[in-house]
Simulated scan of single mutants.
Amino acid sequence: MARPVIWIPRHLSPATLERARRDYDVILKDQDTPGTAEEIVEMSARADGMIPCHSEQFTAEVAGRLDPRLKIIANHSVGTDHCDLKALKARDITVTNTPDVLNDATAELAFMLMLGAARRAVEGDRIVRSGGWDSWSPSYMVGKQVTGARLGIVGMGGVGRALGRKARGFDMEVHYHNRQRLPPDLEQGASYHETLDSLLEVSDFLSLNCPATPETTGMMNADRFARMPQGSILVNAARGALVDEDALLSVIEEGHLAGAGLDCFLTEPGGNQAFAGHENIVMMPHAGSATAKTRDAMGFCALDNLDSFFSGDDPEDAL
């Protein structure tokens, strides 16, 4: 029996590619660039499955043009806002993702952004690197203390819970808002808020860890920022669509927020250059899951889903 053919548009970890080639006939795109709509449609006639990333867009229009040969899209990501799930389901195409394996890596990066914004890391690094550190006083480089502060988490899924565990190591008071309250064993002492507005009012630091949906897109707007305490800090390691970037820039410039830590933006790649002139905004290029261990785990999770599907079982992470 011929082995299934798998198209991989991005250059995944070496361990992932080695395993994929062991078990499947792999078509790997030569250039590590996002697969275009035309490439996706073309490859659907040559492949039984795909391992795309968030950079490949499976819109309703693309889904309608896919060849019947394609049976499974095993995403190398936890988010699926790049997939029109309804349109793909109508074509009888199974879609999977890679939940949980990236929780700790993403939470680590969110905590780095929080600490960096709180302790003025961008400004301090620039001063030392440029040779501008020529004085000291008790009022020099004073920042915001993380230990003992109140952390608000929006979205208490795997990443949110991992962040809460790390925050407790800093003796932070953890609060959260979620679609529904967690059972006590998952809550781990965190305080639940039925509404986002209630959470905002007690958040010295606010971390966004929820998916981008029609309900959450643009939820952090001018009104919501105004509800946060004076001198608070926003962290977004989830999706850029959650934040009204103009509103965020305004509250930073006005001094209502002391800073922000951002790993995602409305425009990716590229980010928002209007933020670049503000050293109290710490930025990363959507690298939350970018550790070698997690990249291997994500790739293996996608391959596990393919293995299940082609063996006739339901993939564990089917959506």
Score class of each variant (00 low, 15 high):
Arg129Asn: 12
Asp30Ser: 14
Val243Pro: 07
Val202Glu: 14
Ala105Arg: 10
Glu254Arg: 15
Ala167Tyr: 09
Gly143Thr: 09
Ser77Asn: 14
His177Tyr: 03
Asp313Glu: 15
Arg126Trp: 09
Met220His: 05
Thr59Phe: 04
Ser232Asp: 03
Asp314Ser: 15
Gly240Ile: 04
Arg126Pro: 07
Ser137Pro: 12
Asp23Ala: 04
Met228Thr: 08
Asn103Pro: 07
Glu56Ser: 01
Gly189Thr: 04
Ala318His: 14
Ile27Arg: 09
Glu268Thr: 09
Lys89Asp: 13
Trp7Met: 05
Gln57Glu: 12
Ala118Thr: 07
Glu254Asp: 14
Val95Trp: 11
Leu28Phe: 08
Ser207Cys: 12
Phe225Trp: 04
His54Ile: 15
Asp48Ile: 00
Val26Pro: 04
Gly270Lys: 10
Phe58Asp: 01
Gly35Val: 00
Arg3Phe: 02
Phe309Asn: 13
Pro214Met: 04
Val282Trp: 13
Lys166Ala: 13
Leu196Gly: 00
Ala110Tyr: 05
Gly288Thr: 00
Val122Tyr: 06
Phe170Trp: 15
Asp23Gln: 06
Ala37Phe: 02
Gly259Gln: 07
Arg91His: 09
Ser191Thr: 15
Ile8Ser: 02
His256Ile: 01
Ser191Glu: 15
Val235Cys: 01
Ser135Trp: 14
Gly158Pro: 06
Leu262Glu: 03
Ser207Val: 05
Gly169Ser: 11
Tyr140Pro: 01
Val202Met: 10
Leu262Phe: 03
Leu262Ala: 01
Gly35His: 08
Pro9Asp: 04
Pro184Gln: 14
Thr267Arg: 15
Pro214Glu: 03
His82Ile: 07
Trp7Pro: 00
Arg227Glu: 01
Met172Lys: 11
Thr98Glu: 11
Leu151Arg: 11
Gly132Ser: 12
Leu248Trp: 06
Ala90Gln: 15
Thr80Pro: 06
Asn97Phe: 06
Ile73Ala: 11
Met228Arg: 10
Met283Arg: 14
Leu163Phe: 13
Thr216Leu: 09
Asp317Thr: 13
Thr33Gln: 15
Ala222Pro: 06
Phe310His: 12
Gly124His: 10
Arg65Leu: 07
Asp244Pro: 00
Glu108Trp: 09
His193Glu: 07
Gly131Phe: 04
Val154Gln: 11
Ala162Cys: 04
Asp244Phe: 04
Glu187His: 07
Glu123Gln: 15
Ala2Phe: 02
Leu113Arg: 08
Gln57Pro: 01
Phe300Cys: 02
Thr294Ile: 02
His175Ile: 05
Ala2Arg: 11
Asn97Thr: 12
Met50Glu: 00
Ala190Ser: 15
Glu61Tyr: 02
Phe205Ile: 04
Glu201Pro: 03
